[in-house]
């Protein structure tokens, strides 16, 4: 195991542990903070893939802007500890949990051990792909139609939010 590989595994373990902490904390504020931590681990993982731009954006947009909004909303709503909704697990849930676990094990086996033996070396092109210039150029040449479609999607989201949430429509 090279130093690089060990580094990746440490980051991945950090990401998984912080993700688990997000869904197991009772207090929503704690969950949010662990989610921010999770985003930092992910950003570091992107860096190991030589995707600098995405790593920076991950921290700026997700960890920075979106999570702060989350935090504000939770604080404004003044949410306390989550109450236990149900204390008994029904047999239906047992079956569902069993199936989900089996599925997760499958995914872990196939993605983790199925065909990849160790990690491939990152190609020289990857470093170039990670730059802002390259991404910008690709987005507005090769991927121009998806970008335009996403802009339509965002217009729709804005209109929809107003339609659903505005106090009085006229």
């Amino acid at each position: 195991m090279t130093f690089e590989e060990a580094f990746v595994y440490i980051l991945a373990a950090g990401a998984i542990v912080s993700a688990l902490l997000v869904i197991t904390r009772r207090n929503p504020i704690n969950s949010v903070i662990y989610l921010v931590l999770n985003f930092f681990f992910l950003a570091a993982l992107y860096l190991t893939l030589k995707a600098q731009f995405i790593a920076i954006i991950q921290i700026l947009v997700y960890a920075g802007a979106i999570m702060v909004l989350f935090m504000f909303v939770i604080m404004l709503l003044n949410l306390g500890d989550e109450k236990q909704l149900r204390d008994r697990v029904t047999w239906k849930q047992m079956v569902a949990i069993g199936l989900s676990l089996a599925f997760v094990m499958q995914v872990i086996y196939i993605v983790g051990f199925g065909e990849t033996d160790g990690m491939d070396a990152i190609s020289a092109k990857a470093a170039e792909i990670g730059t802002v210039e390259y991404i910008g150029k690709e987005l507005f040449s090769h991927y121009v139609l998806p970008i335009e479609a996403i802009s339509v999607l965002i217009v729709l989201a804005v209109v929809g939010a107003i339609v659903l949430a505005k106090r009085k429509l006229d």
């Binding site: 991927y143 139609l145 998806p146 479609a149 996403i150 339509v152 999607l153 729709l156 989201a157 209109v159 929809g160 339609v163 659903l164």
Partner: peptide, 21 residues
């Protein structure tokens, strides 16, 4: 392209979520 397909599906689904409410 799978990317195009995904954006299309999301555009459609988001509209449905709004319309349902």
């Amino acid at each position: 392209d799978l990317l195009m397909l995904f954006i299309g599906i999301e555009l459609m689904s988001l509209s449905f979520y709004i319309l349902a409410g």
